[in-house]
Design a protein around this nucleic acid. Sequence first.
RNA 1: UCCGGCGUCGUCUAAUGGCAGGACAGCGGACUUUGAAUCCGCGAAUCGUGGUUCGAAUCCACGCGCCGGAACCA
Length: 587
Amino acid sequence: MSDPKKTPEKSPRPDARAAKQGDARQDEGQPGNFVAEIVEADLARGATGGRLMTRFPPEPNGYLHIGHAKSIVLNFGLATLAPEGVCNLRFDDTNPETESTEYVESIQADVRWLGYDWGDRLYYASDYFPQLYAWAEKLVEKGLAYVDTRDEETIRATRGDFHTPGEDSPHRDRSVEENLKLLRAMKAGELEEGAAVLRAKIDMKSKDLKLRDPLMYRIKKVPHHRTGDEWCIYPMYDWAHGQSDAIEGVTHSVCTLEFINHHALYDWFLEALEIPEPPKQIEFGRLNLTYTVLSKRKLQQLVSEGHVAGWDDPRMPTLAGMRRRGFTPEAIVRFCERIGVSKNDGVVDVGLLEHELREHLNATSRRIMGVLDPIKLVLTNYPEDQEDWFELENIPKQPEAGTRKVPFSKVLWVERDDFMKEAPKKWWRLAPGKEVRLRGAALVTCDEVIEDAEGNVVELRCTWDPESRGGTPADGRKVRGTIHWVSAKHAVDAEVRLYDRLFAAENPSSGEGGFLDHLNPKSLEVREGCKLEATARGMAPGTRVQLERLGYFVVDADSTDAAPVFNRTITLKDSWAKIAKKLGKKG
RNA sequence: UCCGGCGUCGUCUAAUGGCAGGACAGCGGACUUUGAAUCCGCGAAUCGUGGUUCGAAUCCACGCGCCGGAACCA
């Protein structure tokens, strides 16, 4: 059952189409959601007597990813369309060979993290095994199911294919008594794995291959993560899923498009069991994202072959990975609400996800300064022992977010990328003879460049304008460039992990070769010896900040007080990079 | 090739027989103590061919294209 300690706050999710219902925003374009329209229409005509129940039904055999988030946001959002609407969390745990409690726990943590609350409605398909079995006997008694005792290959071979009808099993016409006897023997463990299966008796010649006497039970003498050794027959998906929906009283069973081929069978079972108010299955298009793979098999492979550090590697599209990367749940939910819900098999530009991320982080992240690739900058006219403490806003244009004091002294660190010996056109940053603003501190002019024997710049010698404290010159002259800096004697040394997209190809799974051929070799760059502003000392893991002019970062769980570790969540947009690219092309 | 689903700006998505709109991306400009943010502006689409209609993205017919389906997986 759900953890009673953590009664998440009543999640204030807007209902799935809140904006469409407000007349003020009637004219604003809203993303489509045909599932919500169906639900509203059903509600409006009283199809369910006012009841509304959806469910999120993961199989606990892997970690949740951004594609699941779309389904979670949809299902929990739909539940808000009626006053008494609810959404259940149900584990579809019918295959003990692949499932485990590790996944049961991570899935719950991830759904909660997104901000959703299933109340006391935490369910398991495995809790329904007794009811499912009783129903199976009922179907046998009605002559709608039979035990087939041929081997797997024979059954497969007689199913036919797209072009040829299947052949009836010779066991199709066993008597009810014999079927019951065999089914009970299966259940009692008297038959070996593979020796028998229970099949629905539908139509071996149906054009819908799913209706060619589908399997209901198979024998697996494998312990289950919840039921242990109690069962040695386990229901197949089609036999378990719709019936689980019916047991819970689900009104709208929303699933992805690949299950549309199961729709007729879903309805067949419910009808055969004479379920009075059967749930309605509705299929929508699953999420695909550019530069991303979302298939469970591929994610599993990335983990097992060590291409990433684990399911929660910050480059993974898993919710655990995104959390560690520094994503906010709000950004993910907002993204899912904005992409719309349709039956199109589309690929959403990962840029839209990044946009939502930046938008939320921009509004909520405290700013600090940090230098990732330091060069020393010495203020020749600044007294050796002097210090200034400048007050900077934590978040610009949000006075309520407060300010912080940042120390300034004679020897500073600045970013290597912010200096060029020969400045191109439109370069507003440091260069010999040029004046720039040190953000929030003062104007400085670069007088001298010191290089080592190989010609690497090792130090910039500058003079500061004492009349420009805070960054505003006394005479009002305009200084275009502003760069970030850190006082050397106050700096916090940190490791910074620069993450980028895991794949370099827009569609990693297309084209020649496998998706692994498209791994981005630069998806992770670890920088040691980065210099952060004093404020960064002792930040708790999970703290999100913007390193000004660089991007958004989050304190990683690997941090210690002595050795902080920051992950780059995402860079800021960089219009200079575009200009530089153009200049490069022209040159 | 059989069954099913789907085709609207580069991408996602509106328009439910009546002016093809929004968002992201792109491009241009303003502003700027983050080359960020913000603001303003620009370009950009109905898969094709017929038909019905005063009027079609929408209805009909025939094509074409993409995706899914022949697990004792979900």
